[in-house]
Amino acid sequence: MDLSSISPVTLIVSLMAASTPILLAALGELVVEKSGVLNLGVEGMMIIGAVCGFIAAVTTGSPWLGFLFGAICGAAVSMIFAVLTQYLMANQVATGLGLTMFGLGLASLLGHSYTGINPPAFSQIHIPVLSDLPVVGRIVFGHDPMIYFSLALTFAIWYFLTRTRGGLVLRAVGESHDAAHALGYKVIRIRMLAIAFGGACAGLGGAYLSLVRVPQWAEGMTAGAGWIALAIVVFASWKPGRAIIGAYLFGGVTVLQLNLQAAGLAISPAYLSMTPYLATIIVLVIMASDKKRQSLNAPASLGKTFFAST
């Protein structure tokens, strides 16, 4: 095995690309859960975003339109979940699982004739001088625009949740929908908007996967990324800044095991492929052992159906 073939700089650059889809989806789900809704359909919304974004990009030739359309489609399928759970009072866990299965099926149908096609290229930015700096240039200034967007979005969500009135109302709805309702806030409307935002973020993450990360369309290509995003929300204890750590940790292990496979580590690749998922489980177990702190941060109304009694 030749460990010297693994370059730290390349590793960091590629782990950022590997983490971005999960980060985007996790940020969206974080906002949804902060409003008190548990949407387990992230995987389904992601793959819909992946296929719709891919189709739009291939058809129009513009990756930007692909991202946009992926986000719109993610939000659109999330509305199925939203109407079922918010207006028809369906159980959120069951509906979310249903949404995942529905999304996976619909995506295979839509993407049937798009396998094996290359999408239009989505290139990295290049800033003269800065991007050519050794090490720093590639790590800080050499990514594609979506990576910068995902980082900006993290900051924006943190700012929204902690510094604005809208964010305060959203957290209040997730904390106690009865109290928020008694004060005259529109619980259902706020939750609908949060779910749509979560859907758009998941769709965007999916589109990044099919347009940049892979870049191809393949059936079932999200491969559990939506579930990892859900786990990262818990790992992050509903804090946007920590979602970056969680997503990059997972992305890092993914990229590292690929590199180790390439470097010829004498372990079956099957075991190496498991490591990101195992790492996620271990981290979640460690997090869950500190119940007190977690229950302080978790939205108290998470997953509970709201029914206005007055």
């Binding site: 009135r165 305060l168 109302v169 106690s176 109290a179 806030y185």
Partner: peptide, 20 residues
């Protein structure tokens, strides 16, 4: 002034007041 259901335990006093 409500009997129950109108305060948010995980938010601060100032945040609770701002919401009302």
């Amino acid at each position: 002034v409500f009997q129950h259901f109108s305060l948010f335990e995980a938010l601060s006093v100032a945040e609770n007041i701002a919401l009302g």
